[in-house]
Simulated assay, not measured.
Amino acid sequence: MDYNQHWENPETFAKHVGKKLRNIRKEKEMSLNDLAEKTQVSKLTLGKIERGEANPSLTIIWKIANGLAIPITALVADSKEVVISRKQEGRKVLSADESLTLEPMFTNSGYGSLETHRAFLKPDSFYTAEAHQPGVIEFVTVMEGAAEVVVGEEVYPINVHDSIKFHADQPHGYRNRGKEEAVLHFVMIYTKA
């Protein structure tokens, strides 16, 4: 696959994610029933994803990754020696309400312990993330605009070039109260393999 390939075509992206998921499931010697139980995603939905018939939302991809205890980039990234991640040219995963667009950037290896993402949070919107798997530490830097990061019950205002670090194995979210899109940079470290 060419490093310049874009995932603007939802069918190509769906087939890519499906193939990755099927390979990971088989590697772990799991049935679709086992996978459904671990991820809390229906067997029907998982089957459609594996066959490339469904383009999973960000929420579904997070559920699958958390259930398998892998970074989401294990499902959406290619393995390359040298990779350039250009804004708005890479893979895009949308939240169900399309308030957040996530662009996975890099991972250190297949099921690596580190991953990075660019995220674009629409004006006047809020995205709630479910708790990640145990041991995930998240670093968020605001690159443009401003945002509030909600961790548990606490709200932390973060301005341009400010960063926050927190344990992401608890409910958290991102709010943009502004009138311009907020651009966020995520680094996630998986401390338990």
Rank of each mutant, 00 (worst) to 15 (best):
M1T: 09
M1F: 10
D2L: 13
D2N: 14
D2I: 11
D2Q: 12
Y3I: 08
Q5M: 15
Q5Y: 15
W7S: 15
E8N: 12
F13Q: 10
A14C: 06
K15T: 07
H16A: 13
V17W: 04
G18W: 05
K20V: 01
I24T: 07
I24R: 08
R25F: 03
E27A: 13
K28W: 02
E29D: 12
M30S: 03
S31A: 07
L32N: 03
D34G: 02
T39Q: 03
V41F: 03
S42W: 11
L44H: 03
L46R: 09
K48P: 03
I49G: 05
E50Y: 08
R51T: 04
A54Y: 13
P56N: 11
L58F: 12
T59F: 11
I61P: 03
K63W: 06
I64P: 13
A65Y: 15
G67L: 15
L68C: 09
L68E: 04
A69H: 15
A69T: 14
T73R: 07
T73G: 12
T73S: 15
A74S: 15
V76N: 01
V76S: 11
V76I: 09
A77G: 14
D78P: 01
V83W: 12
R86I: 03
R86C: 03
K87N: 08
K87T: 11
Q88L: 11
G90W: 13
K92F: 09
A96W: 06
S99Y: 02
S99D: 09
L102M: 09
F106G: 00
T107I: 09
N108I: 04
N108H: 01
S109C: 06
S109F: 06
Y111D: 05
H117F: 13
A119H: 08
Y127M: 07
A131Y: 06
Q133N: 11
P134G: 12
P134D: 12
V140N: 08
M143F: 03
G145D: 02
G145A: 00
A146I: 04
E148L: 12
E148Y: 13
E148C: 08
V150Y: 00
V155T: 11
Y156G: 05
Y156E: 01
I158M: 07
N159Y: 03
S163I: 06
S163D: 07
S163C: 09
I164A: 07
H167S: 06
A168N: 04
A168M: 01
A168L: 02
Q170G: 10
H172D: 02
G173P: 07
Y174F: 09
N176C: 01
N176W: 02
K179D: 01
K179Y: 00
A182E: 01
V183L: 02
V183M: 06
L184R: 02
L184K: 00
F186S: 05
F186G: 00
A193F: 01
